[in-house]
Design a protein around this nucleic acid. Structure first.
Length: 428
RNA sequence: GUGGCCUUAGCUCAACCGGCAGAGCAGCGGACUGUGGAUCCGCAGGUUACGGGUUCGACCCCCGUAGGCCACCCCA
């Protein structure tokens, strides 16, 4: 047994898992195109300050989960692996002057993110996300469009029981007043608060609403709700988002405790949640409006909304639901030979077929024919091209491994025959 | 970062009270020297996660480390 292993919180995606991820990436890219998003790439790492400003210095993601790279010299820049994509995309938006493009700019990134936290099922230090951002649109219609796109992703991926949780967290006009009210409410109940919750009262009072402490339920349910404290503009925005969701037939559950802690988040906040899951990593994805972020990263005031969907958690959900694993495409044909030593013929014929765009495997191990066919069967190849004495007359045996039939085919016609058969097999 | 449970062959798991580390599947080979998923036979695969300790003797008991899982924190 090797003493080397994948680093903690990472895992190798063996071909079967990689196929499952590729399938999800394919759905994401297809949806992105259908909804008018353009795919881009951003670096896997950025200056630490991009994340500090773009996510928030007081968040757990930055405070304790940032995957920092050690600087090479005393005075060199501090880098960190990206814990999410939004900050980097917005940085790129500002850097490349995308405010001069037709607005809104709709961008998407598919790739892995990194967080240095304690691993668990569905929670990794390297994980995959599909991220989509619409920058330069104040909503509310686009809010509903984004939420609907995410929901369609789960539908097309085949994840059942995904619920949309929805809330409005107000904006700079009404949230400060709400926060003050919330603080004073909990302060008046401080005696009933456990130690952890008392600390939160200082650091992030909104989080109190989300407490999992069972002794808190009474206090929390009586707490003032943001939905009752929205200013007229936010109230109107929220109502319009809901109206648009209703219009496109997206069901949702209003979730008053769904929050985002930082100032530049505004109004719409949503999560995709899986019901009836065993483990607790039930948040499959989430997003919201961040009307202050572009400005914070050096751009002009620009309203924006986006989401990040966790692809690992979708894979987990599909596994647990017993979904059919994504099949890798088997080779159309395997080139085998009666003479185990004649690897030259097998390689030559395989090369010929590959030149015609066909997907074939050459059996180059020097094993007897029976073994070669056995392997071809096990990998679900549709055909075996058998090379033997008839090759001297320019012929091969073309064997249909599913039907068990075979016939003599001139080598000159082989590619054509296989290509035709591939079509009738609706081979993918 | 805090607490708990777990770790035996590539995979799934056995091994009595502390007394010779095993099986199924997968791999490779043979039966079958030009015809496949079955069957039978064989081969290979292990410092029992790693490092210490207790003991005549440790997969088994104790300590530490690593990794996994669960609950928190938080989130995808």
């Amino acid at each position: 047994m090797s003493s080397y292993r994948a680093p903690r919180g990472t895992r190798d995606l063996l071909p079967e898992s990689r196929a499952a991820l590729s399938r999800l990436e394919g759905i994401a890219r297809s949806l992105a195109v259908r909804y008018g998003y353009r795919e881009m790439e951003i670096p896997l790492f950025e200056q630490v300050s991009v994340f500090e400003r773009g996510i928030g210095p007081a968040t757990d993601v930055v405070e304790k989960e940032l995957f920092r790279l050690t600087p090479r010299t005393e005075d060199s820049e501090s880098w960190a692996l990206r814990p999410e994509a939004t900050a980097g995309i917005v940085r790129a938006y500002v850097q490349h002057g995308m405010q001069t493009w037709p607005q809104p700019v709709k961008l998407t990134v598919v790739g892995s993110m990194f967080r240095y936290d304690r691993p668990q099922a569905g929670r990794y230090r390297q994980f995959w996300q599909w991220d989509a951002e619409t920058i330069g649109d104040p909503g509310p219609a686009v809010d509903a469009e984004v939420i609907e796109m995410g929901r369609r992703f789960y539908a097309e991926a085949g994840v059942a029981d995904v619920q949309v949780l929805l809330n409005s967290i107000g904006d700079s006009a009404c949230r400060p007043a709400y926060l003050a009210r919330l603080k004073s409410y909990f302060a008046s109940h401080e005696a009933e608060l456990p130690e952890l919750e008392r600390r939160r009262l200082e650091t992030n009072p909104l989080r109190l609403l989300d407490s999992k402490d069972p002794t808190m339920t009474a206090v929390v349910s009586a707490a003032p709700k943001i939905s009752e404290c929205l200013c007229d503009a936010c109230e109107a925005h929220f109502a319009a988002v809901r109206a648009h969701l209703d219009a496109v037939g997206v069901p949702y559950r209003l979730e008053p405790t769904l929050v985002r802690g930082l100032d530049y988040y505004a109004r719409t906040a949503f999560e995709y949640y899986r019901r009836g899951a065993e483990g607790q990593q039930q948040a499959l994805g989430g997003g919201g409006r961040y009307d202050g972020l572009v400005e914070l990263l050096g751009g002009r005031p620009t309203q924006a909304i986006g989401f990040a969907l966790g692809l690992d958690r979708v894979m987990l959900a599909l596994d647990e639901a017993g979904a059919q694993p994504a099949r890798e495409a088997p080779p159309l044909a395997v080139v085998v030979g009666a003479d185990p030593a004649d690897t030259v013929s097998r390689l030559r014929v395989a090369s010929l077929l590959r030149g015609e765009g066909l997907s074939v495997r050459a059996e180059l191990a020097q094993r007897k024919l029976g073994r070669q066919l056995e392997t071809a069967s096990k990998e679900h190849a549709h055909f075996a091209v058998i090379l033997g004495d008839e090759l001297a007359e320019g012929n091969v045996q073309l064997k249909d491994l599913e039907a068990g039939t075979q016939r003599l085919v001139p080598l000159a016609d082989l590619a054509h025959e296989l290509a035709r058969a591939a079509k009738s097999h609706h081979h993918g």
